[in-house]
Amino acid sequence: MTEEIIISGFGGQGVLSMGKILAYAGIMEGKQVSWMPAYGPEQRGGTANVTVIVSDDVVSSPIVSYYDTAIVLNQPSLEKFEPFVKPGGTIIYEGHSVFQAPKRDDINIYRIDAMEEAARTGNSKVFNMLVLGGLLKVRPIATVDDVVKGLHKALPERHHKLIPMNEDAIRRGMEIIQKVK
């Protein structure tokens, strides 16, 4: 199994940390992983994306031409990455930020209203964990338990008290993701 994922959105949405937590969860499952950010003079509100690969075998190139799954959290990201999803692959888009839905009919398309859910619960910080939950529902790359183990390893101890809140958000994300086509 090799899953090549692009996560793309605005700076500040938690794109890079979501990728990092996913990669850590992969390590907890004994898998090989790579996490390759687009870096540069990035800023809050600018664009941010990260390629995460989780594989049973050694990861060859951390840079890939086509993706199994694209998670797009704004309209420019959808336009940029929709053509590069492999046939039979998956797009997950955020319902509020993406106003023109993906057009392809040879891929699986899911919508997650994570921003609305975050606003409803008044906790915008778990936005990316809601999206991660949605991903794990439709592409079970890692179990929630492994993600939680990964969080314990990725976060400094002073932040461990926040883990249950993040776990709840992941589980909630699994519930709210909807298949579009």
Partner: peptide, 10 residues
């Protein structure tokens, strides 16, 4: 190079 420097792996 900048990729190996910036990427994360286990």
């Amino acid at each position: 190079d900048g990729v190996i420097g910036q990427m994360m792996e286990k």
